[in-house]
Simulated scan of single mutants.
Amino acid sequence: MASRTFVAARLPGFSTIAIAVFIALYLPIAMLMIYSFNAGDSIAIWDGFSFQWYERAWENDKVKEVTIRSLIIAASAASISTVAATMAALATTRKKPFRGQTGIYVAINQPLMVPEIVTAVALLIFFASVKVATGYQGLGYLILAHSAFCVPFAYLPIRARLEGMNLTLETAAADLYATPWRTFRYVTLPILAPGIVAGMMLAFVTSLDDVVITLFVKSAGQDTLPTYLLAQIRRQVTGEVNAISTVLLALTVILLTTFFLLTRKRS
């Protein structure tokens, strides 16, 4: 008699453990979202439904300032890292296997394997030396730091898209005397576009949510939205913090859902 296939979901207590894990993960987030609509000042006592915390956050000039700064940094870092990741993906997938290819993969994905605090300390030391040498204290350091950290997040979906592409159309374009640039522009790039967009969105979300690297690299007066929220929580947790966190969560979910829809396999 053939042996039965092992299925983890059939183990005793699996459903109970799964439900408990989901509750532990998502109940705090649900509570945060619910109390962002609380009419009272308490974050633990429900005093009625109200949009007052969203209105206060909207009227808070500091929140607008750090939000705009976060969006500028995230958009810039996502653009730079996506361009670099696209070139790296083309160089590592449109060639026959070569010596040192594994080392290149390791180098590109290094930010994913090394603890973020280690990367943050390394960037701090490097940019501190540059700041002393140049005297420049602008946002460029944060943008470059986020770009370096976001490259592997953009690289993975782009590389996956390239590896799943059929070379028939590119070969046909070459047979019709198209130059490598025209083949890339009119054949490869349109097919690769969903992977590039998905990689850029993933890099954008990663940069927008980052705290550790930002805390180590930023100069005075360069708070982003996550570091601003961290500073506010250290003083007092208010409904305004809940409202801002809920909006940030909604934006992240929308972008990640779009990323999933762009990268899922189609029949």
Score class of each variant (00 low, 15 high):
A2V: 10
A8K: 08
L11M: 12
G13M: 07
F14G: 05
A18V: 04
I19K: 05
I23V: 15
I23C: 14
A24S: 14
A30L: 15
L32S: 11
I34G: 07
S36I: 07
A44L: 14
A44S: 13
D47W: 03
D47R: 15
G48Y: 06
S50D: 11
F51V: 13
Y54W: 12
E55G: 07
E55P: 00
R56H: 14
K62P: 00
E65W: 07
I72F: 12
A75K: 03
S76I: 07
S76A: 15
A77N: 09
S79M: 15
T82F: 06
A84Y: 04
A84W: 08
A89V: 02
L90Q: 01
T93C: 07
P97I: 09
T102C: 00
Y105K: 07
Y105D: 14
A107I: 04
A120M: 08
A120W: 09
L124V: 05
A128D: 12
A128V: 03
A128H: 08
S129T: 02
Q137H: 14
G138P: 03
L139G: 08
Y141R: 12
Y141C: 12
Y141Q: 09
L144P: 01
A145K: 05
S147W: 07
S147D: 10
V151R: 08
A154H: 04
P157A: 04
R159G: 00
R159S: 15
M165V: 03
T168H: 13
L169K: 01
E170Y: 03
A173V: 03
D175G: 03
Y177A: 14
A178P: 01
A178E: 06
A178C: 12
T179G: 13
W181Q: 03
T183Y: 03
R185E: 10
T188N: 02
L189H: 03
I191M: 14
I196W: 05
I196K: 08
I196M: 13
V197L: 12
A198G: 02
A198V: 02
G199W: 09
M201K: 00
A203T: 02
F204K: 02
T206D: 06
L208Q: 05
V211T: 14
V212A: 11
F216D: 07
K218G: 06
K218L: 09
S219D: 15
A220N: 08
G221Q: 05
L225Q: 07
Y228R: 08
L229E: 09
A231H: 08
A231G: 15
Q236S: 13
E240A: 11
A250Y: 00
L262N: 03
T263K: 06
T263S: 09
R264D: 02
K265M: 04
K265V: 10
K265C: 00
R266W: 06
S267K: 14
S267Q: 12
